[in-house]
């Protein structure tokens, strides 16, 4: 039983952190942290507690006009985000996931001028998200698939009116969005033990609220966002696993007082390979390294877009015998 529990914990950890893929960057249409696209898959059972820490680095220096990549020799941007995920199982089927973020945004402009470029860095606590997950169909030894539904809110903990020397910064340099958003989330997976393979799919939808960017009668709204990802995972060697996912994300244009903001919104398709391994220094812990490879993007107008993403995650589980959604490979 003890051996089973350990494998169960590790498998669940892999399942969760395998989805910490952060496939999509903020384009210049988005402020804050990449919360929706960074949610882990799976859930935890009653009394189980799982902590995850992810460091995510996005280079956003490509420039696109529609689906055409342009040569960008003027601006370089990147965003690094620390995400702290706390999963707790309230009952066998219901769990709560809280995600806190800390955001570091960097922008360098005027690169074409040589040594007179201007750098701007903003850092701060980003927005947070709370999801309540309901395990519609828990995975068992006999029925090796699961369906988990979640709903929650994104809370505007991050600052969205940051100023530099008194001047209000652009929305895309703000750590937070300043708006309450509603989030729907759906995760499903099926395991094929004989093939050492798990297939999974995760969908999330964020309905954006509005913020008062310039004044109390000013309504800025980031575009709604839908993310769907699907892929497969399995064991490679001993306890080391892989994940390979394809993700499609679409974001509507931002609006200000109901008018579409230019150069916001678009569609992105990307692939994200990941390697997951037990963390040798802690029991019931795993680490993941993942990357992101953009495959296709269509942006409204002309926008900076993601060049690549690198992520590293550490997950630590507690109360493993109560984890659900496990698969003994």
């Amino acid at each position: 039983m003890r051996n089973f529990s350990k494998k169960a914990v590790l498998t669940t950890l892999f399942g969760l952190c395998g989805f910490v893929l952060n496939l999509q960057a903020q384009t210049c249409s988005c402020a804050g942290a990449p919360l929706v696209s960074s949610q882990s898959g799976g859930t935890v059972g009653k009394g189980a507690f799982l902590i995850g820490y992810t460091f995510d680095y996005k280079n956003i220096s490509d420039l696109y006009s529609g689906s055409e990549e342009l040569i960008n020799n003027t601006v370089e941007r990147n965003t690094s985000t620390s995400l702290l995920e706390l999963h707790y199982g309230i009952s066998e089927r219901v769990a709560v996931t809280t995600t806190l973020t800390y955001v570091n945004k960097f922008r360098e402009t005027g690169l074409h001028l040589g040594n007179s470029s201007q750098k701007l860095r903003t850092t701060g606590v980003g927005d947070a998200m709370v999801l309540v997950k309901y395990n519609v169909h828990p995975q068992t030894v006999f029925e090796q698939y699961q369906v988990i539904f979640g709903a929650g809110v994104k809370a505007p903990l991050g600052e969205s009116s940051m100023r530099n020397n008194g001047f209000l910064l652009n929305a895309d340099m703000q750590p937070g969005t300043g708006a309450w958003d509603g989030v729907l989330w759906l995760y499903s997976s099926k395991t094929f033990p004989g093939m050492n393979t798990e297939l999974f799919m995760m969908n999330s939808f964020r309905y954006s609220g509005t913020n008062e960017r310039f004044s109390s009668d000013d309504r800025y709204r980031f575009g709604n966002e839908f993310v769907t990802s699907a892929g497969a995972g399995g064991s490679i060697f001993r306890d080391i696993s892989y994940r390979m996912a394809f993700r499609y994300r679409t974001a509507a244009s931002d609006t200000r007082n109901s008018a579409n903001m230019p150069d916001t919104g678009g569609r992105w398709l990307s692939a994200s390979p990941a390697l997951i391994s037990p963390f040798p220094f802690l029991e019931n812990a795993s680490v993941q390294l993942s990357g992101n490879i953009p495959l296709y993007q269509y942006v409204e107008g002309t926008q900076p877009s993601i060049s690549y993403t690198l992520s590293a995650s550490l997950f630590i589980g507690f109360g493993g015998e109560k984890l659900v959604g496990i698969t003994d490979f």
């Binding site: 820490y53 620390s82 702290l84 806190l100 800390y102 470029s117 201007q118 750098k119 701007l120 860095r121 903003t122 850092t123 701060g124 606590v125 600052e159 940051m162 100023r163 530099n164 020397n165 910064l169």
Partner: peptide, 18 residues
């Protein structure tokens, strides 16, 4: 860890080459 990071940016933006 988060709190340490928070405290380092409590004054909001950090601009270089100002």
């Amino acid at each position: 860890l988060f709190a340490v990071q928070c405290s380092s940016v409590s004054t909001n933006s950090d601009s270089e080459n100002q």
